[in-house]
Computed example of a mutant assay.
Amino acid sequence: MEFKDSQAIYLQIADYICEQVLLNKWQPEERIPSVRELAVQLEVNPNTVMRTCELLQQQEIISNKRGIGYFIHPDAVKKIRQFKKDSFISNELPSLFRSMYLLDIDVDELKPYYEKFKKSNFR
C-alpha cells in the first residue's frame, strides 16, 4: 500500500479496512487479519495498526474478542457508508460542485461517465 503525505497513516489504514468491507472482501462478523499480520502486509509499525483498530472500535466498525482478534461489526457496512457519505458531502462535494459550476457542467452530463466507471471498476 502506498501512503499519501496528506493524511495520517493510521487514517489511511482505516480507509483501507473500510474499503475491504464495502467491497465485500471482509464480511460482517468475520475475523480480520491480526494487528501483526496487517502491519507486515502494509509495511507499517504494529502500533500504527493498533491505533487504527482503536479508532475503528470507537466507531463500532470492528470489535475485539479478547484473545481471538478483531471482527467486523454486524452493522459495519451501514456505519461505514453513512460516515463516508457525510464526509464526502461535507468535504469533497463542494469542490466538485465549484468545478462543475465554473466549467458549466450539468449533473446530467456526468451520468454516462459514472455508469462507465461503475462498469469498468466494479463488475
Rank of each mutant, 00 (worst) to 15 (best):
E2N: 12
K4G: 12
K4D: 13
I9M: 07
Y10K: 04
Y10L: 02
L11K: 13
I13P: 00
A14W: 00
A14C: 07
D15Q: 05
D15E: 12
D15L: 03
D15T: 05
I17Y: 01
I17M: 02
I17C: 00
C18R: 06
C18D: 05
V21C: 04
Q27G: 06
E30G: 05
E30Q: 12
E30R: 06
P33H: 03
S34A: 08
V35M: 01
V35C: 06
E37V: 04
L38K: 00
V40G: 01
V40H: 08
Q41M: 10
N47A: 09
V49H: 01
R51V: 02
R51D: 08
T52H: 02
E54V: 13
L56W: 06
Q57L: 12
Q58V: 08
I61Q: 00
I61N: 00
I62K: 01
S63A: 10
N64M: 11
K65P: 02
R66Q: 13
I68D: 12
G69V: 05
Y70K: 00
P74I: 04
P74T: 07
P74W: 04
D75T: 08
V77L: 08
K78M: 11
K79Q: 15
K79C: 05
Q82L: 10
K85F: 14
K85Y: 15
F88K: 03
I89T: 12
N91M: 11
E92R: 07
L93A: 09
L93E: 14
P94H: 07
S95H: 10
L96C: 05
L96E: 06
Y101M: 08
L102C: 05
L103N: 15
L103H: 14
D108V: 11
E109M: 11
P112C: 05
Y114R: 10
K116N: 11
F117W: 11
K119F: 10
N121A: 06
R123T: 10
